[in-house]
Every structure is written in structure tokens, then in C-alpha cells.
């Protein structure tokens, strides 16, 4: 456990080293958030309520989505690809810690640093320039927190699984892009899927993506009743279990493959 804490600490320092990246990221994310806010304001100009959500809730949705996007940054897929390309997989796997545990700790470290570096500033900027993103129903807070933790895990597991494809088909850059696009467009991070045609939305509700962004965000803005939210979280949990099982299986196979072939 101590080793993992050490990795986390190192990663926090690493993430904070380049102050220009930090400020650059804040500026870029702020621009994106404010543009999105105006986008929705313009769409709602002549309407009060579309798809059961009003303009005000939509702005909250945008701000919290920006914050979540910071939390949902992963580096694990790139790390795996790099270790395969550079041929360091085998030695990485010989280390006295689990490789994937190490990658997980690194991502946790980044997120802790990014929480202070990016999420807090973005929260403050959003509150000043757009609106204070108040939660619709504060009693839902425990649900929200649990769903965010689960969405973080689901997101990380999907990233790790995509990364593991690198063990078979070395260059996964394009695949990482595919994943990124799927996640960006089908998770409700930019546009909630309740604006999609019903059939499409129904299909998406079966896939794991909406449980990464849209579910926690819906809970936050209080869309739907408590029963809907609980049902959503049940599906989210099922996805977490499924992905974790696939991950454990894939990890076992990948490790065996690397050990036999020696990378």
C-alpha cells in the first residue's frame, strides 16, 4: 500500500511541475465551459422547458460536466501502449507491484493534483460568470457522490481495457480516438442524450457511456424522480461489475501472454 501512496505523491508533484500547462488548461477549459453555457442559453431563448429540463438546470449541467471532465482524465491507455512500444512491459510486470495498480495510482495522483489545479478554479469561474451550480436536492448528495465514484471507475476500466488492446495490435492511437469520440458524444458530456430521438436514447441507456457523465449529472440537477435515479445507479453498478470482471480476466491473460513471450 505504501508503494502506491508513493506513486500517488510522485504523480501529484509531476502534474504540478509545469505551471504553464496548469494555467493553459484552466484557460482552455474555461473558454469551453463559457461557450457551452452561451450555446445552451441561445437554444433556450424561446423555450422554457425542453425534454423536462429548463435552461437554468442546463447551465448547472454544463458547469458540473466541465468539472467531471477533469476528474475523468485517464492516462492508463497511453501508458500501456508506451510500455508495449518501448518493450518495457515484461520488466514492468516483474516489479513487486501490480502494473495496473501502479497505473491506477498514477491516475489517482493526477486527479488529486487536478482537483486543486483545475476543478476548484473552474468551479469558481463558473460560479462567477455563469451561475452558482447549486444542487437541486441536497438529500441526493450521497447518491451523487457514489455515482461519481462509480463513473470514475467505469471510465478507468474502459480506458484500461482499450489500452490492453495494445498487447495485440501495437498501435492503438486510432482506437484511443474512437473511444474518446464515443465517450464525448454518447455519454451526454456535451449534449444530454435525452435530446436524442427516443430509439437512440434507449439504445444508449443500455451502453455504459451514459453512466459515466449523464447519470451523476442528472442526479445533480434533479432530473427524473428518485426511483429513476436509483434504477440508473443499479444499471451503473451492473456495468461496473461487468467491466471489472472483464478487466480482471483480460489482465490475467495479458500477464500470462507477456510472461510467455517475454514482451
Amino acid at each position: 500500500m505504501k508503494k502506491y501512496f508513493y506513486i500517488i505523491k510522485t504523480q501529484i508533484i509531476k502534474t504540478m511541475t509545469y505551471e504553464f500547462n496548469v494555467y493553459g488548461n484552466i484557460i482552455m477549459q474555461t473558454i469551453i465551459m463559457i461557450t457551452s453555457a452561451y450555446f445552451w442559453k441561445a437554444l433556450y431563448r424561446n423555450q422554457d422547458n425542453v425534454g423536462g429540463v429548463d435552461a437554468d438546470s442546463m447551465l448547472t449541467y454544463i458547469i458540473i460536466s466541465s468539472l467531471l471532465s477533469v476528474l475523468l482524465i485517464t492516462n492508463v491507455e497511453k501508458r500501456i501502449e508506451q510500455s508495449v512500444i518501448k518493450g518495457t512491459v515484461a520488466t514492468d510486470m516483474m516489479r513487486p507491484i501490480n502494473v495496473f495498480g501502479g497505473y491506477f495510482a498514477e491516475d489517482i495522483g493526477s486527479i488529486i493534483a487536478l482537483f486543486f489545479q483545475n476543478m476548484l478554479p473552474i468551479f469558481i469561474i463558473g460560479s462567477i460568470f455563469i451561475k452558482v451550480p447549486k444542487m437541486a436536492d441536497i438529500t441526493a448528495l450521497p447518491l451523487f457522490i457514489i455515482s461519481v465514484v462509480e463513473s470514475f471507475l467505469i471510465n478507468w476500466l474502459i480506458a484500461a481495457l482499450f489500452g490492453m488492446i495494445a498487447f495485440t495490435a501495437i498501435n492503438i492511437d486510432a482506437l484511443i480516438q474512437v473511444k474518446k469520440h464515443l465517450l464525448r458524444l454518447l455519454s451526454g458530456s456535451i449534449i444530454p442524450v435525452w435530446f436524442f430521438p427516443e430509439k437512440v436514447a434507449n439504445v444508449l441507456e443500455v451502453l455504459p457511456f451514459v453512466y459515466i457523465y449523464q447519470l451523476p449529472l442528472s442526479i445533480y440537477i434533479g432530473k427524473g424522480d428518485r426511483a429513476d435515479q436509483i434504477r440508473g445507479m443499479e444499471i451503473q453498478f451492473v456495468w461496473l461489475v461487468i467491466l471489472a470482471a472483464i478487466f480482471l480476466y483480460a489482465q490475467k491473460r495479458a500477464t500470462r501472454k507477456v510472461m510467455v513471450q517475454g514482451g
Binding site: 505523491k9 501529484i12 508533484i13 504540478m16 511541475t17 505551471e19 496548469v22 489545479q117
Partner: peptide, 16 residues
């Protein structure tokens, strides 16, 4: 100039 450790990294963010 970089100061060592976590506090060094924090300071570096504000003043370099």
C-alpha cells in the same frame, strides 16, 4: 529553479 518535494511544486505554481 525548482524546489524539491510537494511544497516545492506548489510554490512553483505561484512563483517561479
Amino acid at each position: 529553479k525548482k524546489a524539491p518535494g510537494l511544497s516545492g511544486a506548489l510554490k512553483g505554481l505561484v512563483k517561479r
